[in-house]
Nucleic acid binder design. Sequence first.
RNA 1: GGAGAGGUGGCCGAGUGGUCGAAGGCGCCAGCCUGGAAAGUUGGUAUACGGGGUAACCCGUAUCGAGGGUUCGAAUCCCUCUCUCUCCGCCA
Length: 438
Amino acid sequence: MLDPKLLRNDLPLVAERLSVRNFKLDQDALSELDRRRKALQQRTEELQAERNSRAKTIGQAKSRGEDIEPLLAENSRMGDELENARDALAEVQAELDAILLTLPNMVDASVPRGRDEADNLELRKVGTPPSFSYEPLDHVDIGARRSALDFETATKLTGSRFAVLRGELAMLHRALIQFMLDVHTREHGYVEINVPYVVNAETLKGTGQLPKFEDDLFRLVWGDVGTRADAGATGNDYYLIPTSEVPVTNTVRDTILEVSELPVRYTCHSPCFRSEAGSYGRDTRGLIRQHQFEKVEMVQVVHPDESYAALEQMTGHAETILQKLGLAYRVVVLCGGDIGFAAAKTYDIEVWLPAQKTYREISSVSNCTDFQARRMQARFRDPTTRKTELLHTLNGSGLAVGRTLIAIMENYQQEDGSVAVPEALQPYTGGVRTVLQP
RNA sequence: GGAGAGGUGGCCGAGUGGUCGAAGGCGCCAGCCUGGAAAGUUGGUAUACGGGGUAACCCGUAUCGAGGGUUCGAAUCCCUCUCUCUCCGCCA
């Protein structure tokens, strides 16, 4: 959520910042709504003050044993007026809140304007893509051996966009997770955390997925489907997490941290569930875009002065994984048209995929500034003023496990169809150095 | 799933209709005391929004798990929801 004070005091500035995202802010509607809110609030509070003072007078009169009947009669007329004012205020406030919750974060000044991913800015290329003496296979063909990567069975079990991993490929997948967690905890100072994969609506609101992006989520319905479908009305709405950023970041919701507790650094392995609504026909082949995938996430909660340094640092942490695995990648800064709802600045890391002969996203690292913190009421206490202030939150993949597996399969493929295991990973494969041998 | 008990400030805990943002304690901050500290002692110690003031600050409103109701007036009474704890059942 954006700062309501800023919205009141400098709407044009907000509109300008949001225009970088190609988001058009209806300034007139917003300021008119706020003007009404203010008038109604003052009127309501006036009436409440009067009611309070009268009630107090009655109480005092009664305690002196005086006759309070005349006072009561005088008061009976106030009720309706107060109620009307209160209702009108609540209505306008709700309208205003609804708008506020759908406004995206303001992007940092360094974020370039642009329409879509084509306008993202490449910052650096690291590593050299491998060369092959033959036309490299893609991961689907490589994984076909002994049904190590099995989409048919997954379709039978569930439907499209799911996969079954078997044998050495399942083992390699697991090794990757453990490798990443170990690097982040032992070398990068993160605390490993394990969290629920099912969360409530409040949690999703905190990180910004709700109310605007419900279509991207899997919502749980249980028990009697007929009566539970509208479970939200009774407070029972649970969703599968689209990323562990959601539960991990929300661990600091409604808390006030001391400066000594900062920065908070968590790394978390979890499955992620995404409906992929609106991506029909995209990446339909292979493991690239699935309804369920696994990810090792990094989350930091930091002092506002530190967040942009933390963004660079976290990007470096994700890059370290790729470097250790010997994979070529590039780093891009997302343009206004491609950046996510909650982020003020995002770096995408894209790994080289030989079969596609292109770089594909494998990590996304974002500084969400105070946007999520305000929604979550995640604050710290300034040691000098003793006042509470909003924290800054960051999240980044370190890395998407499925896509890392793809990258290894394609980049480390050998002419006989087997896949070499990167050296850094071998301690995690029990010394196995090649998988999917003929 | 059944039965019961409970959710009050950073924490513990009192408060069953009136001047209660809420006793008391702990913690924290500041002063005094001390060579310094502990102990002692005095004072302070929530958040949000609105209004006023250059500012320190002052005034108003709201907040005692959440929402609704009763009432001139609700932390206190009623209803719904939610979470926690105890016992029983079931279960990886």
